[in-house]
Design a protein around this nucleic acid. Structure first.
Length: 228
DNA sequence: TTCCCGCGGA
DNA sequence: TCCGCAGGAA
C-alpha cells in the first residue's frame, strides 16, 4: 500500500485482482435468475425492485415482486390506489407503512414527470424516496454509468478484503465511497456490482463467513487476521 | 442516531 | 429465540 493524502491507498493491482476474481466467481455462482436483472425491463420495473429490496433480502423480494407488479403495473396504478391498499400489498415484505407512503409520493411525482427519470444526479435526488443508493442504482442500470451499489453487504466485503471504513454511516465515508467507485469503475460495472452483492450474500456472510470456500481468502485481510 | 417490519436461517 | 436484510427520512 502507498500513502496518499495521509491515508493508505490501495494499489491498483489489488483492485484489478479483486475485480477479476469477482467476475470469474459471478459467472459460475451469480444469482443470474433474479427477475430484476433480466434484459429489457422498464425504468418502472427496475425502480420498483430497488424499492422492494430496501432492508429486505433478495430471496424474499424474488418471491413477491411479480405479484406486486401484477397488482401495480404502472406509476399510475400506485398513484391512484388507496394508501391502505398499498400497505396491505406490501405487508409480506415488511416496512410496509413507511414504504407505502414513500412509494405513493414517488408515484405521484413520476406521474407528473410522465414516467421519465431525469438523467442528472441532482434532479434525481430531489425526487421523494430516491436516496444515494437508489440514485446510484438508476444511474447504473438506466443510464449505464459506473456507480457503486454501496449497501451493508458491499461494505462488509470491501472492509474485510481491503480495509475498514472510518465513519459509522456508510453513505458519508469518503474512504469507502472512493474505494467502492474504484472497484466498480470497469466496463462490466453492473456485473461487478451484482457479483459483490451475491458474493456477500452467499460467501462473505455477516454471521458465518465461508472463508474455507472463498476464492479470495489467500489475499484477504480479514482472513489473515482471523486465521480461519 | 433511530425507527421502520416480516421473513428466513442459524 | 435471535440476528440481519440491494435504505431513507426525521
Amino acid at each position: 500500500m502507498i500513502k496518499v493524502d495521509g491515508r493508505k491507498r490501495i494499489v491498483k493491482a489489488r483492485i484489478i485482482l479483486f475485480q477479476d476474481k469477482m467476475l470469474g466467481w459471478f459467472g459460475v455462482f451469480g444469482r443470474h435468475h433474479l427477475p430484476w436483472r433480466q434484459e429489457g425491463l422498464s425504468s418502472y420495473e427496475i425502480v420498483i425492485a430497488e424499492v422492494l429490496l430496501q432492508r429486505t433480502k433478495a430471496e424474499t423480494v424474488e418471491k413477491f415482486h411479480a405479484l406486486f407488479l401484477e397488482t401495480f403495473p404502472s406509476w399510475e396504478a400506485i398513484a391512484k390506489a388507496d394508501n391502505s391498499f398499498i400497505e396491505q400489498q406490501l405487508q409480506p415484505v415488511g416496512l410496509y407503512r413507511q414504504r407505502a407512503k414513500r412509494l405513493k409520493d414517488l408515484a405521484l411525482e413520476m406521474v407528473g414527470r410522465e414516467g421519465r427519470f431525469p438523467s442528472d444526479r441532482k434532479s434525481l435526488e430531489q425526487i421523494p424516496f430516491l436516496g444515494q443508493y437508489i440514485v446510484n442504482a438508476i444511474e447504473l442500470q438506466l443510464f449505464n454509468k459506473p456507480r457503486p451499489l454501496i449497501d451493508v453487504n458491499m461494505t462488509r466485503v470491501l472492509e474485510r478484503y481491503f480495509e475498514e471504513r472510518q465513519l459509522a454511516d456508510i453513505r458519508c465515508d469518503p474512504y469507502l465511497q472512493s474505494l467502492a467507485f474504484r472497484v466498480i469503475n470497469h466496463p462490466r460495472s453492473k456485473e461487478i456490482n451484482w457479483a459483490i452483492l451475491d458474493f456477500a450474500a452467499s460467501i462473505c456472510k455477516a454471521r458465518v463467513p465461508l472463508c474455507t470456500s472463498c476464492l479470495l481468502a489467500d489475499t484477504c485481510t480479514f482472513y489473515k487476521k482471523n486465521l480461519f
